[in-house]
Structures are given as structure tokens and as C-alpha cells.
Nucleic acid binder design. Structure first.
Lengths: 191, 191
DNA sequence: AATCTGATTTTATGGACATCGAATTATATA
DNA sequence: TATATAATTCGATGTCCATAAAATCAGATT
């Protein structure tokens, strides 16, 4: 369902007078003058609201005798609101695209000619930058501390801080033999 | 559920930006700055909308690190919209009271000192007036045409028209023996 | 055809609200 | 405690919209 279409539907229902009209029509079909009396509104006002409700396909009209009867489109209404309740989903692709765009923007603003200009203070941005730095290491290979420094020094002056942050984020592992780049665990796939 | 409360809820959802916020929060909890980037809105604007959503109890917030995370109140949202879909009912008493008030107003405006001043052109009003006139006849008893005229003449000059209208509305029945007031059929209870 | 009545459209007006930038507040890190 | 940063509030602005009176339209009855 169209996003704007849903907004239009809700805008239509989000009015005291129109909601009262809908509720009245839920019980039985009615014509303008009667609605006008019941709701204590001018007939022109009721007509105005009915027009909007009709444009949103919430009500429809037919003539009988002197009057123009208005009826509720129950199916349409129920269906639309059900969609609203269970909507929420359906954005995964779009969301991933936006996430990637954001990631790229962060990278662009902290890297210059392949070099890191600063380490972001914000956790999320910092994480992204560190992930980029971590890609310099071959997965599986074990590096000595000296080798790690050689990899990092071309992209940032303060190699010590950068190396510590990488370890802190779990992007670089270490033990007695040296450093290596661990495979991303299942828990880290989401972020 | 309060009528105005429901209007407030719908008003809150009936906005493009807020709806996009809700949809984004449906996937995961987010903080203001991120929402601001994703929706291409100023942080103050996002904050403004989140405040409204929080007032309507659609979202709630908690702090983590630097950020204020916002989360969707799924239960509340689902429940409210379900109520909206299945609302419609619950007005019977109120409606009958209004219907009776309307009926009394019609009677007051067309009867003067127990006499009919005119027969309404509008179907609905005409029906009400004729129902009142029909009460002059005892149910079950058969009247001659002369007797019918005697009953009606005190309340309206044009007895012929009045009698014809009563028969036309089914409030007076006739055959070879004369006229009588029929018991209301099941189909006529509604109107 | 003339007229009565209900419905709609037009027009005017007052109020609500989304948006953003600037200033302020609150909180976490150093 | 000082500072950086995210969040909120404030003030201003332009747009949208609900409401109703008056004019017009439509349809049915006589």
C-alpha cells in the first residue's frame, strides 16, 4: 500500500467530526440533514466532511427519494487499518540501502586519500571507521606487533591508540603468538 | 476508549514524518540523530515528532551511552487500532435517545394544541406525524369510513388526504368491512 | 413548467501545525 | 570539574485545514 495513501486515510479519520460521522454510519446509512442535526453541524460542513470521506473511499453514496444516503465501505476500512497494524515490515531492502549510504558518508568524512584524519568520538561512527581499518589485515594470518604497526602507520599517526581500539572492538585478536583478524561471530552480523 | 483519545492517536499517526518514524522504529530502536539522517529532517524536527508520539504513548525512550533510544509501544498501538476497527458499536443507547429527541421536536413543530398544522413534505417527518395520528385508533377495532373521519377531523381539516396517507404508510388497513389499525410488523420495528 | 427542499460548492476566516535554526539543557567522558 | 556531543526547547514562518454563511445546483412533487 502506498505510503501517502495511508497518510491520507489516517488524516481523513483523524478528525473529531469525521470520526463521529463514521461511527454514526456504522450503525445505519444516513443522509446529510440527519447527520447535520445529530452532530450539531451545518449541513455544508457535513457535506464537506462526507466529500473527504468519499475521496478516501471510506464512504459511498446513493440517492433515494429526496435524500442522498451515505454508507460505510466496511471492507475497505477494515482492510486498510489491518494493513496499518501489521505494516511496519517491508522496508528491509530500503533500510539496508540507507544504512550503507550512511556508512559511506561516515567513511568519506573521516578518511582523506585513504588516510584516517581522526578517530570519531561517536561509538557508531568509530565502529565503522575501525571496520574499514581492519580490512587491511588478511583474515587467518598472524601478525607480530611490529607488522601490525607497519600496516596501520600509513593510515594514522597514533598507531598505538588505533591498535588498542581495534582490539577493544574485537576487530583484532591477540595472544602470546601475536595478533590476527578474527572471523566475525554470528552476534556481530547485525550491527 | 475515549473519543478524543482516539482522535489524538489518529492525528498523531496521520503525518508523513511520524509514520516514517514509526515504521523505522518497528524494525529496531533508534536515536534522534540517526532518525534525523535517515529521514532527512532536522534533529529538532525529529525531536518534536518523537515528543508527540511519546505523549500519545506510541513510543517510549531510554538512555544508552550518549544517546536517547526510542522504542515502539507495540501492544498499545495494536490494541488501539484494533479498537478503532471494531469500534462502531457501543452507541445504541445514545442513538435511540437522540432519535427520540428528534421525534419529539418534529411532533412539537407540526402539532399545536393537539391539532395538526400541516402534513410534512419530508418522508421521515411525515411518517412520525402519521404514527402519532394513528395512535387515535384502538388496535383491533374495525372502523367504518364515517367513524374514521370522526376520529381524524378534530386534528386536521383535510381528512381525506390524512386518511389516504395513513393507508399509504400502512398505518391504517382497509378491506370490504372497513378500516382498522394493524399491529406493527417485524419489518417496521426498525424505522 | 414551476416550485420546494435537500445537497453541494464557493468564499472567507481563524486556528492548528510542520519545519527549521538558534539557543539551551543534560549527560557522559577525560 | 571541564568539555564534547546529543537532545530538547524556543521563536518564527508558511502551509494546510475545519467551519459556516451565502449562493448555486439537482431532483422530485404538483
Amino acid at each position: 500500500m502506498g505510503e501517502d495513501e495511508l497518510v491520507a486515510l489516517l488524516k481523513c479519520l483523524a478528525d473529531r467530526s469525521r470520526l463521529r460521522i463514521v461511527r454514526a454510519l456504522a450503525a445505519e446509512d444516513l443522509y446529510v440533514e440527519l447527520l447535520s442535526e445529530r452532530l450539531a453541524l451545518a449541513p455544508s460542513t457535513v457535506s464537506f466532511h462526507l466529500r473527504k470521506l468519499a475521496e478516501a473511499r471510506i464512504v459511498s453514496s446513493y440517492r433515494t427519494q429526496y435524500y442522498v444516503m451515505y454508507a460505510l465501505n466496511r471492507a475497505k476500512l477494515d482492510h486498510n487499518l489491518l494493513v496499518l497494524v501489521s505494516a511496519s515490515a517491508g522496508d528491509e531492502g530500503e533500510q539496508e540501502r540507507r544504512e550503507e549510504a550512511y556508512r559511506q558518508r561516515v567513511i568519506d568524512s573521516f578518511f582523506e586519500y585513504g588516510c584516517l584524519t581522526a578517530i570519531p568520538r561517536q561509538r557508531k561512527k568509530k565502529r565503522i571507521v575501525l571496520e574499514v581499518a581492519a580490512e587491511r589485515f588478511e583474515p587467518g594470518r598472524v601478525y607480530s606487533e611490529r607488522e601490525v604497526n607497519d600496516v596501520l602507520s600509513p593510515i594514522y599517526d597514533d598507531v598505538c591508540t588505533l591498535r588498542r581500539d581495534l582490539v577493544g572492538e574485537g576487530l583484532l585478536a591477540r595472544d602470546a603468538r601475536g595478533y590476527w583478524r578474527p572471523a566475525p561471530g554470528p552476534g556481530e552480523l547485525a550491527s
